[in-house]
């Protein structure tokens, strides 16, 4: 069973095509990371998944049920859209009590347990308007998790969190997935998404440009060996003679993309020493998700 499926989802606001024919499938237990620049269509897509915006074309299926006014499985879905919001004059506990009522829950111990889980205990009786941005984000996550949903739709869930908070959210999401939940999260913090997502979708100008698993991403990332000697042009000639794929980059360093060199960089060091070009520095460089993302969207045909 697919937890989330969209078919040719399209939304236009006046002349702007916000989302253009997006079809995605999310399997149970996945953490699906949705990457895109600001204005790429991420939030519009999440709002369509929640029925907040009606698509011009296409359908959304949650738990194999078509999303419509009669959709009745909202207690299986938790969400956090854009900036977290709360009733400013209510405390953390009171804010959660509002959604406890609206979600028609019957477990009074759930609110204190969740406050404890999200480390909001010190602020349980603090008014929402007096919370820091990070704690407002925790309260937003608490609202999303209150009813222990099977599917979490999170838009920029680590916004405003300090490094410790970011690690906690990552661990929390992984723990939830281990318990059987599925997570669909959008972010522009690419490094963070790379650490947590099991599958990635890249959205640009409303279109799904690429979809790949974490393993596929690892295979597609550019890697190279960066070497620097006292005479780089001489070392370049020597390595080329030996059949290595090598070039001088903009910083006048040697870039070797030969797979055998990447697997056994010690051999390159040995060859260079033997030929009188002792390396001053030698390291493996791997493209990060940020660079990969920019390469994908820039190389895309207009």
């Amino acid at each position: 069973m697919e937890v989330l499926r969209t078919h040719s989802l399209t939304k236009r606001f006046g002349p702007t095509l916000a989302v253009d024919g997006i079809s995605i499938r999310v399997q149970p237990g996945e953490i699906y990371g949705f990457l895109g620049l600001n204005g790429a269509g991420k939030t519009t897509l999440i709002r369509m998944l929640l029925g907040l915006i009606r698509p011009d074309q296409g359908e959304v299926y949650l738990f194999e049920k078509k999303l419509s006014a009669r959709f009745d499985a909202w207690n299986d879905v938790g969400y956090l859209v854009e900036t977290p919001a709360a009733y400013p004059d209510l405390s953390v506990v009171e804010n959660l009590q509002v959604y406890y009522q609206l979600r028609r829950l019957k477990d009074p111990k759930r609110i204190p347990a969740l406050i404890d889980q999200l480390k909001l205990g010190t602020y349980a009786h603090t008014k929402a308007k007096n919370l820091s941005l990070g704690n407002q984000q925790r309260l937003g996550l608490a609202k999303a998790l209150l009813h222990q949903p099977q599917l979490l739709l999170l838009d920029e869930p680590t916004n405003g969190l300090d490094p410790e908070g970011i690690v906690e959210v990552r661990q929390l999401l992984q723990a939830l997935v281990a318990q059987g939940a599925t997570v669909f999260l959008s972010s522009h913090i690419l490094g963070e998404i790379a650490k947590v997502a099991t599958r990635l979708g890249i959205i640009h100008e409303g279109r799904l440009v690429q979809e790949l698993t974490n393993q596929e991403l690892t295979q597609r990332l550019h890697r190279k060996l960066i070497v620097s000697t006292l005479d780089n042009p001489g070392a370049l000639r020597q390595l080329s003679t030996l059949g290595y794929q090598v070039r001088l980059n903009e910083a006048n360093e040697l870039e070797i993309t030969d797979p055998t060199a990447l697997e056994q960089p010690e051999k390159i060091a040995q060859v260079l020493v033997e030929k009188g070009y002792s390396p001053r520095q030698l390291y493996r460089w791997e493209e990060d998700l940020e660079r990969y993302f920019l390469r994908i969207i820039r190389n895309r045909p207009a």
Binding site: T83, A85, L102, R104
Partner: peptide, 18 residues
């Protein structure tokens, strides 16, 4: 004004009831 409208639209309690 409080930004909470979006949190009232995908709930088991219907929009009309709210």
């Amino acid at each position: 004004s409080d930004g909470t409208a979006k949190d009232l639209l995908a709930l088991p309690t219907s929009r009309t009831a709210i």
